[in-house]
């Protein structure tokens, strides 16, 4: 099985665009120029993050910036809304919130 068959989304056109290399949780991944981060990730893997309320993995919901279900993180801890963020070459994306995102309350 190629990587494109293991994802959730299926490309049905516009497949001759330049390829962009990025990474998901340290694993190399490939998307196309013009992809949103959400589409680039979900053509490779089957989720974007896990629900912090314990009901399993999430893969986005509204795709128009309204539900906020598609939050992912960069390796520097920046939070991105995957459905409205264009894919850029070299992005290092994490599907889990980095620990340092939580401030110390002490």
């Amino acid at each position: 099985m190629t990587s494109s068959e293991s994802g959730r989304f299926r490309r049905v056109g516009e497949q001759d665009r330049p390829r962009l290399v990025f990474s998901i949780d340290g694993q190399p991944a490939e998307g196309c120029k013009g992809d949103t981060l959400l589409v680039a990730m979900l053509t490779q893997i089957r989720h974007l993050r896990s629900s912090e309320f314990g009901d399993g993995d999430r893969a986005g919901f509204c795709l128009m910036g309204a539900c906020q279900d598609c939050w992912v993180w960069t390796d520097t801890g920046e939070r991105l809304r995957a459905c409205t963020t264009p894919l850029a070459a070299g992005m290092c994306i994490a599907t889990k919130a980095p620990e340092q995102a939580w401030p110390t309350l002490a």
């Binding site: 959730r8 919901f61 509204c62 795709l63 128009m64």
Partner: peptide, 11 residues
């Protein structure tokens, strides 16, 4: 409807 793979129609 909270499972991964459920989307809004607009999505």
């Amino acid at each position: 409807w909270n499972r991964a793979g459920v989307y809004s129609l607009g999505a």
